[in-house]
């Protein structure tokens, strides 16, 4: 499944859709960035409530397919701009990380 398809299926908000055709393989849920870097795999959906600038670097380095911000978390404008610059897909939802993980797991 592509990131764009995931967005459409779950009605997620596109904060930054830099690479809509990126294929998703599995997922990871977590807010402690070193845990994410130790565990998330390339191509994963990464669900988090963390919103500071460092998530963009972590997403880039781990090569996840997209970040999904849970619980209606918002990004500052400069973080959104960096996501665009680094071509990192960022989606957003009002749902909890638990609900998002369950729904994404059913889909992929």
């Amino acid at each position: 499944m592509t990131v764009e398809k995931l967005k459409n299926e779950l009605n997620l908000k596109a904060v930054c859709l830099a690479d809509p055709e990126r294929e998703i393989e599995g997922g990871y849920v977590g807010d402690l960035l070193s845990w994410v870097m130790g565990k998330a795999q390339s191509g994963n959906v990464w669900i988090t409530i963390m919103s500071n600038m460092n998530i963009i670097a972590v997403a880039s380095l781990t090569d996840v397919a997209c970040i999904v911000l849970a619980e209606g978390v918002q990004l500052d404008e400069n973080v959104v701009n960096t996501a665009k610059l680094k071509e990192i897909n960022v989606l957003q939802s009002d749902k909890s990380a638990f609900d998002l993980a369950a729904e994404i797991s059913d889909l992929i």
Partner: peptide, 8 residues
């Protein structure tokens, strides 16, 4: 900020 988890 999400760091300092002792995993670095």
């Amino acid at each position: 900020l999400g760091f300092g988890a002792g995993m670095g």
